[in-house]
Design a protein around this nucleic acid. Structure first.
Lengths: 339, 339
DNA sequence: TTGAAAGCGCTAACAA
DNA sequence: TTGTTAGCGCTTTCAA
């Protein structure tokens, strides 16, 4: 049997209302009543029924996060870091986090609609924004609070945190060029992802600035997994005139590329340079360690979460658009020079 | 403005009751009324208010998962795989998943209590069971449904899925011994974790069966991260008489150990053998690739989730205790022989 | 086949 | 300072 307000009311001889107000620390309840109620509530082990509270208050103290997946899973450490950041910040601020995964398409749309209409969450954190992102239109049309990790193509106005991928990739290319590389390949993300656009743009601008020829046959799209990186890098390495450096657009693909190179007897960091993007914990401990761009994913998760909650609470946002500069972590995989 | 039953009732000229029944496909509603109601509901874009439904039905169609963390985060790919498995299975079965992280202690206890009393979730998935696991007593005392990934020390009776770690570690030691190793070290998990017990036991039994001397100075406890693995392996390698093989109790520590060895100029798989446990996606792509024990984490997540939901629904469990045999994945890091 | 009415546990406007 | 009453949106007896 679960303890409810009624039970406390009975035990104290007060009315349900008074008990409710005492528990919520209203100041029109006498101090004695308050402490009496509090004591009894504690004794009885009272916890409010969340659903009743929410039905009444019309908000849920819960934020939603639907992770977009292409395959069935999201084992990318990228997401775990981010998730941890969001979840912990949410908990600090007194919010629950409802998590699910959907692949883009009808199901994803339905999940958002259901959550919005059913008032299941107070707002959404959007991750991995896409060029034409229907999630954004759904949310905006419903006038539903959300904050995103990533920007969107159209000049849509919404709060976001993003890292400056263009800047980051330019940094990488500059680094590789300074090491003497001239044939630099890129392992790009699926083009519908917004960050694919920015990273590719940075890659190309970097080449231009380094006075290098862009060669489209050296730009291959991978699915952001190790396996994808392995496969695409294999193609690059089997080219008649293979690249001397591969800039992967995320760490997982970079690791796949390293394997592909190593399987061909190449020494990564010497015979070929390979770089990543994300700086997942593994990067520091791979062999060779991975030169990559650091994104503070855990903190980013926290920032987006905090933005969202400010939005939900109707508080003014400290900042509406946050663009972070990734930091280049030079490690072994890019080598120190090429002869 | 959100559409509710009342709106549909008005639009169709029916009563709220009838609309509700039509929508829930009761068979005492005429076919025409039903289709009329359905159509209008669709037109208006109706979605039931979750809170009202739950308050009424007294269950939530939500399962809870509180991830225990020692530090602030849970970036272990181990958890992401498991989480994906649980979440996707839950979604298939029509359940939401409420996720949060708490470090063991007062806060964790409070989180469970609040979720139970507030009827916030219908049941819990417990992960990473501990020897004296107070979560289990809380849940059992409240008679609250849960299923665990992992067993517990006391002869407590609850449904679980677990992998046979003892068996797995024996497999590893047997493998290493067959390769000629005699000084085999172990990177063990913190001893309060239940699986630490089983893995260590397997390690020791494996030594005995291989007629090898157990040397307690070769058993070091690490915190399951790469960094922890790196630090503890460093100690082992700097011993006057270092081990020729290191069996880490999870992949992340194994990667750390590999780095430590490589930093000392050792060639992993030749100068020293290193093995892991988990077979996270990275293992196949590290350099050298990691010999480890495969646990189908994604599937395990699904199994535990399904168990829990059967429990919640009061259905008989297909199986109450599931013990899986991990499979040894022999890769490069253990080497093929030692001379 | 349908509708009126009660009630899930809580909060809040209003009265006393 | 306290209690009465209504109502959040839904489901479910019970009666018509």
């Amino acid at each position: 049997m679960v303890v409810k307000l009624k039970d406390i009311a009975q035990a104290t001889g007060k009315s349900i209302t008074t008990v409710s107000r005492a528990l919520n620390d209203y100041d029109d309840v006498s101090a004695e009543t308050k402490s009496l109620v509090m004591r009894v509530a504690k004794e009885l082990g009272y916890t409010p029924n969340t659903w009743a509270q929410r039905l009444q208050k019309q908000h849920t103290e819960t934020i939603g996060l639907i992770i977009p997946t292409f395959g069935p899973r999201f084992s990318d450490p990228f997401f775990s870091e981010l998730l941890a950041g969001i979840g912990n910040r949410a908990a600090q601020l007194g919010y629950d986090m409802l998590v699910s995964t959907r692949s883009p398409g009808e199901e994803e749309r339905a999940a958002y609609q259901a959550a919005i209409n059913g008032r299941r969450v107070d707002g959404f954190v959007l991750v991995r924004t896409r060029r034409q992102d229907e999630r954004i239109s759904i949310l905006q049309e419903a006038d539903f609070p959300f904050a995103a990790f990533g920007r969107a193509e159209e000049r849509l106005d919404f709060p976001f945190v993003d890292e400056d991928s263009t800047y980051g990739m330019k940094l990488v290319v500059e680094h590789l060029a300074s090491l003497g590389h001239e044939r630099i390949a890129c392992l790009a993300p699926p083009s519908e992802l917004m960050f694919a656009h920015y990273r590719l743009q940075g890659f190309k601008e970097g080449l231009t600035e380094a006075d290098l020829q862009a060669d489209n046959s050296l730009i291959l799209i991978g699915d952001l997994t190790q396996r994808g990186g392995y496969e695409q890098a294999s193609k690059l390495l089997d080219l008649p005139s293979p690249p001397t450096a591969i800039a992967a657009c995320n760490d997982l693909m970079a690791f796949g590329a390293m394997s592909a190179a190593q399987d061909r007897g190449l020494m990564v960091g010497k015979d070929i340079a390979i770089t990543g993007f994300d700086d997942i914990p593994m990067s520091e401990f791979s062999h060779p360690s991975l030169t990559t761009l650091h994104q503070p994913l855990y903190q980013i998760g926290g920032m987006v979460c905090e933005m969202l909650i400010q939005l939900i609470r109707g508080e003014p946002l400290d900042e509406k658009y946050i663009l972070l500069k990734p930091e280049l972590m030079v490690r072994q995989s890019s080598g120190l020079s090429i002869d």
